[in-house]
Measured scan of single mutants.
Amino acid sequence: GSVVKEKKEKALIEVRPYVEYYNELKALVSKISSSVNDLEEAIVVLREEEKKASEPFKTDIRILLDFLES
């Protein structure tokens, strides 16, 4: 629970300088966080969101995924 939350919060802070739609990304992460149990599940849902998103938000999600998977 809290470790996953920390990882996601740290990821958002780390990617902030590189993303165009930070507030939207943060809102998406919050929405996903409330419906998943762990980081792996969150990553799966983020990948689905990435497929549906259009640029440049798609790239923002990709940047976040790269950080979460590192």
Rank of each mutant, 00 (worst) to 15 (best):
K52E: 08
K5F: 14
A27R: 04
V3L: 12
N37D: 09
S35P: 03
K7L: 15
L12Q: 02
E41G: 08
E48D: 08
Y22M: 04
K8A: 15
L64Q: 00
Y18Q: 03
T59Q: 12
S34W: 07
R16K: 12
V19A: 02
K10A: 14
D60T: 03
P56T: 09
E48Y: 13
V29K: 01
E24H: 05
K7I: 15
V45H: 12
I61V: 06
V45T: 07
E24S: 04
S34F: 06
L65Y: 03
K52T: 07
V36F: 07
S2E: 12
K5V: 09
A53D: 01
A42D: 07
L39Q: 05
I32T: 04
E40K: 04
S30Y: 09
A42P: 01
K31T: 09
K10I: 14
I32V: 10
Y21M: 14
T59M: 09
E69D: 10
Y18C: 06
E20S: 15
L68T: 01
L12M: 05
E50T: 06
E24A: 07
L65M: 06
S54I: 08
S70Q: 12
E6W: 13
G1I: 13
A42R: 02
A42I: 15
S30L: 13
I32K: 01
D38F: 05
Y18N: 03
S70Y: 11
K10E: 14
K52A: 10
A42E: 07
L64N: 00
F57L: 04
I13Y: 05
V19M: 02
R47C: 10
R62A: 10
L64F: 15
E20Q: 15
D38E: 08
I13D: 13
L65P: 00
E6C: 15
L25V: 02
V19T: 02
A53W: 06
E55Q: 12
Y22P: 02
E48C: 13
N37G: 12
L12C: 09
T59D: 08
I13E: 15
Y22K: 02
E41A: 08
Y21E: 07
L25A: 01
K51H: 12
A53I: 04
E48S: 10
L28S: 00
Y22C: 03
S35N: 10
E48R: 09
V44R: 10
S34A: 14
Y22N: 03
T59W: 12
K51W: 10
L64D: 00
A27V: 08
A27I: 10
E24F: 04
V45D: 09
K7P: 09
L28M: 04
L64P: 00
I63L: 08
L39N: 05
S70L: 10
D66R: 11
E55N: 09
A53R: 04
V3I: 09
S34M: 11
V36W: 07
K51Q: 10
E40R: 09
I13V: 08
L28W: 02
S30T: 12
E6K: 04
K31F: 11
K52M: 11
I43Q: 04
L65V: 13
K51D: 13
A53C: 07
E14L: 10
D38G: 09
I63T: 08
G1A: 12
D66Y: 14
L46Y: 03
E69A: 12
K8D: 13
V3S: 14
L39S: 07
V15P: 01
Y18R: 05
E24K: 13
D66V: 12
T59N: 13
V29C: 15
I43A: 05
E20A: 14
V15I: 08
V3K: 12
I61R: 00
V36P: 02
E50P: 00
A27M: 08
E41V: 06
Y21S: 07
L68S: 01
S54F: 10
I43L: 12
V36L: 05
P56Y: 07
Y18H: 06
G1S: 13
S34H: 07
K5E: 15
E55K: 09
V19N: 01
P17N: 05
R16G: 07
V45W: 09
E40H: 10
V15Q: 01
S35T: 11
I13G: 04
A11Q: 03
A42G: 08
G1L: 04
V4D: 15
R16M: 09
T59E: 04
E24G: 03
K31H: 13
I63C: 05
I13P: 01
L25D: 00
A11T: 03
E41N: 04
S33D: 09
L28Y: 01
K52W: 08
E6V: 05
K31Q: 11
S70K: 12
D66I: 13
T59L: 06
D60Y: 04
S2M: 11
S33H: 06
S2C: 15
L12Y: 02
A11N: 05
V15G: 01
E48T: 09
K26M: 06
L28E: 00
D38K: 08
R16Q: 10
E41K: 04
Y22H: 04
L39H: 07
V45N: 08
E48M: 14
E14S: 14
K26W: 05
S35C: 07
I32C: 15
E9V: 03
V19I: 06
S2K: 06
E69V: 08
I63Y: 07
P56H: 07
S35K: 11
I13H: 11
E49S: 05
K10N: 12
L46H: 00
L12W: 04
V29D: 01
K8C: 15
P56M: 06
L25R: 00
D60M: 03
E20F: 14
E20N: 13
S34T: 09
K26Y: 13
S70M: 11
S70P: 14
E9T: 02
S33W: 15
S2T: 07
E49K: 05
V19C: 03
S34I: 09
T59V: 06
E69G: 12
S54C: 10
K5I: 11
S33T: 13
E9Q: 05
S30K: 07
L65S: 04
E41Q: 09
K51E: 13
V4W: 15
G1F: 01
K7R: 11
E40M: 07
K52G: 06
L25Y: 01
D60N: 03
P56W: 08
V44M: 12
L46F: 05
N23A: 13
V29W: 14
E55W: 10
R47I: 08
V15R: 01
Y22Q: 01
S30A: 12
V29H: 02
K8L: 15
D60H: 03
K51M: 12
N23S: 10
Y21L: 13
E69W: 08
I61Y: 01
D60I: 05
K26N: 08
D38W: 09
S2V: 10
T59R: 15
V45G: 11
E49R: 03
A53H: 10
G1M: 06
F67L: 06
K58D: 02
R47F: 09
S54A: 10
L12R: 01
E6H: 06
E49I: 04
S2I: 09
E40C: 08
I61F: 01
I61A: 00
V44Q: 10
K31V: 12
K8N: 15
K51C: 13
I32P: 02
K31N: 07
N37H: 09
I61C: 02
E14Y: 08
V19D: 00
S2G: 09
I63K: 05
V44E: 13
L68I: 06
Y21R: 07
E41L: 05
E14V: 08
I63A: 03
K5T: 13
A42H: 04
V15D: 00
S30F: 10
F67T: 06
V45S: 11
L46M: 04
E20P: 01
